[in-house]
């Protein structure tokens, strides 16, 4: 549903909220796998891996602000 846009041209376009088609491999095998519940956690974790930047270290280092207030 389009939402009224305050700034800029036109009405707001909702970003795609479908799962990205990313072919993310299932997370690592091993001990952890058996412990996970079956209530969509695997699916959620796969969705997270599909949208986050792959280089976590570079991403984290890149997020630096000056102080606020």
């Amino acid at each position: 549903m389009a939402q009224e846009r305050i700034f800029g041209q036109g009405s707001r376009r909702e970003e795609e909220t479908d799962l990205p088609d990313n072919g993310t491999p299932a997370p690592s095998q091993g001990a952890g796998q058996a412990q996970r519940d079956t209530q969509g956690t695997d699916d959620l974790l796969a969705e997270i891996d599909g949208v986050l930047e792959t280089n976590a270290e570079a991403f984290v280092k890149g997020f630096v602000q000056k102080g606020g207030q």
Binding site: P27, S28, E57
Partner: peptide
Amino acid sequence: AAHGMDYANPRLLQ
């Protein structure tokens, strides 16, 4: 748990 990581892993801070 799924990835065998702890909070030291930069992925968790991400």
